[in-house]
Design a binder for these strands. Structure first.
Length: 506
RNA sequence: GAUUCCGUAGCUCAGCUGGUAGAGCAAUACACUUUUAAUGUAUGGGUCCUGGGUUCGAGUCCCAGCGGGAUCACCA
């Protein structure tokens, strides 16, 4: 596994020994008390008030070094950004012994090493706010050279660290040298915090439900399988948490939500990772109309919190998360884009219609799948601005309450942004007898060859039989939402550690 | 799964119709007390992804494999 070392790695290991031989611990244990961050100094320092900046302590990686004999400049990168530091030999080595400057700083420090400095803030002749170093501390040795992208005055980047494989496999390096990558993940955390804050203000409760499930329910997808040794039973990693959150509504909570890492054993591409994060929330005594208002206000709040505006750029699109969003029924949407009215059509009529529109069909597809195919092929991609598509056909929504006015449809909506589904919500089906029948229809689909139909969860049906209040539930694809809010076209860019094939052993 | 492109120094890349390996940064040494892609001079650094094949000779051509990107298909 241990590769042979490069010339530079060997040198750094030798330097490590030199440090120890000279009584300098390369990995000291003592805390270093940081008082300031780079970017705070740069944005708050004013020359008139420089008396207030005479004692600062910073720590971070040394990312560049320009030595000019008895003085030198270097750049220190901390968690917030970078700041230039100025080191003068006579000031950090006032006595006879010039080791700290001549050897420690100039020879034994490498780019990427962690250092601590104490000193005062000043402005250089060219106007750059910098820290004048009085004391210099060695904090941690870096044994592998980092890639160092450079930027010129015009902002052109040279030697950028851009190879996606290396960036994803060694995200720690990516984060160190590509500041824009860090910004994406800061926004991701802001998004999660903003959404939590939005839910918590209504008193809804964040909960945890099982990741290991004996029946993978709540969605249609192939699960990852595992095995519990002590019980000697198969277990599945969850594909959704829906059925467990509904059990909690049965149990008497008014509002529960969970950020759920879900696992689906399917393909990987720029919008799909085998593990991804969903958020599901269930609120008792509400319906899908209420949930639409709740959703659009929530997303407006989140967009504002993440980007400081409700507007967002995604590729060539300008999208605006400001509520309210249009509501369009699926029937109307298909009518708008194809002129075909799905209302009252039989499975055969739908299949014929699909064929005439050039959509591939097979015999395992029921009415729900056929309608979904039309919508997916002809309609979905047209909704750039946030739009609620509502009232899905009954066959494609086995967990959704039948529409109060037309029993062929269900009270369901999906939120479309840039032609992609971002959220999915229902007036939840709480009639246990209806629910059992819907599961049985899924079983029939399975027998016809639809390998994505749902399993029957008997315990969930038992819970419904005890009674669940009218409830509306919402699921949001957090990774996708994050992509839209950070203008990233690939899910790998919003996951710290996207799934990769195992690295070849050297 | 299909198509297509890519893999050369620590990093970013060049390398023509096949002729024995190149640049910038990084590294090493020296010089330099306000530089900022610091500068100047000198030096070292390579299993050209792996394995076969063609050839007098392969980084280059052919085949297979491994890894990755892009587009498409599938998939909530």
């Amino acid at each position: 596994m241990e590769h042979h070392l490069s010339e530079q790695e060997i040198l750094r290991r030798q330097t490590l020994e030199t440090l120890r031989e000279n009584g300098i611990e390369p990995y000291p244990a003592a805390a270093f008390n940081v008082t300031h961050f780079s970017t705070d100094i740069k944005s708050n320092f004013v020359d008139e008030a420089k008396d207030q900046w005479t004692e600062v302590a910073l720590a971070g990686r040394m990312m560049s070094r320009r030595i000019m004999g008895k003085a030198a400049f270097a750049e220190l990168q901390d968690s917030a950004g970078r700041i230039q530091i100025y080191i003068n030999r006579e000031e950090i080595c006032p006595g006879e012994d010039k080791t700290i400057y001549n050897d420690l700083f100039k020879k034994w420090c490498d780019l990427g090493d962690f250092i601590g400095i104490k000193g005062y803030v000043f402005r250089t002749q060219v106007g750059e706010i910098s820290v004048h170093v009085r004391e210099f501390f060695f904090l941690s040795k870096s044994l592998k050279p980092l890639p160092f992208p450079k930027t010129d005055e015009q902002g052109n980047v040279f030697d950028a660290f851009t190879d996606p494989e290396l960036r994803y496999r060694q995200r720690y390096v990516d984060l160190v040298v590509n500041p824009q990558v860090k910004d994406i993940f800061i926004k991701r955390t802001k998004l999660f915090n903003a959404m939590r804050e939005y839910f918590n203000q209504f008193g809804y409760m964040e909960v945890e439900t099982p990741v290991l499930q004996s029946i993978p329910g709540g969605a249609t997808a192939r699960p990852f399988m595992t095995h519990h040794n002590a019980l000697d039973i198969p277990l599945y990693l969850r594909i959704a948490n829906e059925l467990y959150l509904k059990r909690l509504i049965v149990g008497g909570f008014d509002g529960v939500y969970e950020f759920s890492k879900n696992f689906r054993n399917e393909g990987m591409d720029r919008t799909h990772n085998p593990e991804f994060t969903g958020m599901e929330i269930y609120v008792a005594y509400k319906d899908y109309h209420w949930m639409m208002e709740f959703t659009e206000k929530c997303l407006e709040h989140c967009a504002q919190a993440v980007n400081g505006t409700t507007e967002a750029t995604f590729g060539a699109h300008q999208i605006n998360f400001q509520a309210p969003y249009p509501r369009i029924t699926m029937r109307q949407s298909i009518l708008d884009f194809t002129g075909f009215d799905i209302d009252g059509k039989s499975e055969e009529e739908l299949r014929t219609a699909c064929k005439s529109m050039g959509i591939e069909v097979d015999n395992s597809m029921g009415k729900g799948k056929l309608i979904d195919a039309i919508f997916g092929d002809k309609c979905e991609g047209n909704y750039i601005q946030p739009t609620f598509i509502i009232d899905y056909p009954k066959e494609m929504s086995p967990l959704t309450k039948v529409h109060r006015e037309n029993p062929a449809y269900t009270e369901r909506f999906e939120l479309m942004i840039c032609g992609k589904e971002v959220a999915n919500a229902y007036s939840e089906l709480n009639d246990p007898i209806d629910q059992r029948e819907r599961f049985e229809e899924q079983l029939k689909l399975q027998e016809r060859g639809d390998d994505e139909a749902m399993f029957i969860d008997q315990d969930f049906l038992r819970a419904l039989e005890y009674g669940m209040p009218p409830t509306s539930g919402l699921g949001i694809g957090m990774d996708r939402l994050c992509m839209f809010l950070t203008n990233q076209s690939s899910i790998q860019e919003v996951l710290f550690f996207p799934q990769m094939k195992p690295e070849k052993q050297g």
